[in-house]
Simulated scan of single mutants.
Amino acid sequence: GFLLDAYGVLLDGERALPGAAALLADLDRDGCPWLVVTNAASRLPETLSRGFAAVGLAIPPERILTSGALLADPGVAGNLRGVRALVLGPEGSRRYAERAGAIVVPFEGDVDAEALIVADQQDLCWPDHLDLALSLLVRRLDAGAPLRLLLCNPDLMYPVRPGRVALTAGALAAMLEAVIRERWPERGIGFTRLGKPSRAIFDVACRRLGASRPVMLGDQLATDIAGALGAGLDAVLVGTGLAPGRETGRLPVRPTWVLPSLAA
Rank of each mutant, 00 (worst) to 15 (best):
R15D: 11
G89I: 11
A69P: 03
D112L: 01
L221T: 09
G232A: 10
N79T: 06
D73L: 09
L259P: 02
F202N: 03
I64Y: 06
L151R: 00
A226C: 03
G75K: 12
V118S: 13
R207S: 13
R148S: 15
G101C: 07
R208S: 04
P33V: 04
I225H: 02
L3S: 05
R161Q: 12
P154S: 08
A143F: 02
R15C: 09
E14W: 02
G92Q: 06
T38L: 08
L259G: 02
R164T: 05
Y158H: 13
A113R: 14
L156C: 01
R15L: 01
A54R: 14
A20W: 02
A231M: 03
L156I: 06
G92N: 04
H129Q: 15
A166R: 14
V76R: 02
T240K: 02
D224F: 06
A40W: 01
P255I: 08
L70Y: 02
G210R: 12
Y158E: 00
P185Q: 14
F191Y: 04
C32G: 01
T47I: 08
P185T: 09
P106H: 01
E177L: 05
L209F: 06
D110V: 09
A69Q: 15
E98C: 10
G230N: 09
V87G: 10
E186Y: 05
S135E: 12
R63N: 14
L10Q: 10
V36R: 01
A173M: 07
P214S: 10
A97F: 08
E98M: 12
A263Y: 01
A41L: 07
R246G: 12
L35R: 09
A228T: 02
Y96V: 01
A41P: 08
C152A: 15
